[in-house]
Write a protein that binds this DNA or RNA. Structure first.
Length: 345
RNA sequence: UCCUCAGUAGCUCAAUGGUAGAGCAUUCGGCUGUUAACCGAAGGGUUGUAGGUUCGAGUCCUACCUGAGGAG
């Protein structure tokens, strides 16, 4: 899922996303959209899909990650989170119920339950406490969601989030408790918060045998291109990451032959396309030398072209993965992906 | 011809007579449920030239060079 925090994937138009990249689902963020433009406005505009002119799927994150990443501005209680807006300092409160209501006001296709994402490293006690709180919040979110469904507002899935920091047994305990909610899918959160990568994968493995295989499992906030096959190998169906879009704007481009840091002097007069094997608009039309020029000039077109390419690359990786799985050759694919990664280094 | 002002990093400019710095540019590094078109590091200097004063000169003095402006 490309990340469109503020109801836009920075640098891309709906036409880019839909017609060129064929994106099927986007992620948007409850925290950001509640602050601006606010759930009332979105509801009055006919929901998030209509507002942003996107009729494909939208998953909205609950704001749990912002509790973590904006921790200087927040206070966490059992009831919910009290925080100050990073925009103007206004006080706001998120509860499991209010974030479900906000996401229903958005008209999201997949709602995320409010969770607490602890920083790394965390003590076992802190991890245990935040895990317990995340479970309690997930139950309340599920109840709120269930009440809406009972009232006729159906068609919106709710995913609770597995936490437990880097303690496999806590993650298993958390997943087991969340199973009782019998939701349409399950997310694995609390990853990529500074821990070494093998540990992230280990945490995904911890709940692989617990989370149901017939429902989507969503690893939140990951990963690098070469990490995607590893997550899938551990049972992950869905991922989102700011990396393709953010790194694109900052000049790191992902290609089938590895990373291209476009500002490097060696691309100054390089007439080749960014990625010979890519069919995206950027690669079909422009040279590395031109892209580098746009980047160095700070031209806005660079962000658009670079983001288009990086999102294409991520989606291509996922398409390759799907193809390999469907043709029964995933282990083979994984092996070759790993050796290509080793070659690139 | 004379007068005034100015010459400091690639560029634009700082620096009481007391360790020559900044921004931009350059070359790199980083970015993982976006407070990020962002953050960080490094390289880069005979302070126009030659003398002088001084314990010590980018800074004060003299001459010259270059540029801008003014007078005639």
């Amino acid at each position: 899922m490309p990340v469109g925090t503020q109801a836009t994937v920075k640098g891309l138009s709906g036409r880019d996303l839909e017609e060129d990249l064929n994106v099927r689902i986007l992620l948007a963020n409850t925290y950001h959209l509640c602050l601006r433009p606010g759930p009332e406005l979105l509801r009055s505009m006919g929901g998030l899909h209509k507002f942003m002119a996107w009729d494909r799927a939208i998953l909205t994150d609950s704001g749990g990650f912002q509790v973590f990443s904006l921790s200087g501005l927040t206070k966490i209680t059992d009831d919910g989170v009290i925080f100050r807006s990073h925009l103007n300092g206004d006080l706001h409160t998120f509860t499991p119920e209010s974030t479900v209501d906000a996401q229903l006001a958005f008209g999201s296709d997949i709602l995320m339950a409010l969770d607490e994402c602890v920083p790394y490293p965390a003590t076992r006690e802190a991890a245990q406490a935040s895990m317990a709180r995340t479970i309690a919040w997930a139950r309340r979110a599920a109840a709120q969601h269930g009440a809406a469904v009972a009232a006729g507002d159906s068609g919106h899935a709710l995913f609770p989030i597995v936490q437990g920091s880097m303690f496999p047994d806590l993650r298993r305990e958390c997943a087991g408790a969340l199973l009782e909610l019998d939701t349409d899918g399950y997310a694995i959160g609390g990853l990529s918060v500074g821990e070494p990568r093998p540990l992230s994968l280990e945490m995904v493995e911890a709940t692989e045998g617990i989370l149901p295989r017939d429902r989507p499992r969503y690893a939140m906030g990951v990963g690098k291109p070469e990490e995607l096959p590893e997550y899938v190998a551990r049972g992950v169906d869905m991922m989102d990451c700011v990396m393709p879009s953010r790194n694109a704007r900052n000049g790191t481009l992902f290609t089938s032959a590895g990373r291209v840091v476009i500002k490097h002097a060696r691309y100054r007069d390089d007439p080749r396309p960014l990625d010979e094997n890519c069919r995206c608009y950027t690669c079909r039309r422009y040279s590395r030398a031109y892209l580098r020029h746009l980047y160095l000039c700070g031209e806005i077109l660079f962000a658009a072209l670079a983001t288009r390419h990086n999102v294409q690359r991520y989606l291509d990786i996922m398409r390759e993965i799907r193809h390999a799985i469907l043709s029964g050759k995933y282990l083979e694919y994984l092996g070759s992906a790993r050796s290509e990664c080793a070659d690139a280094e």
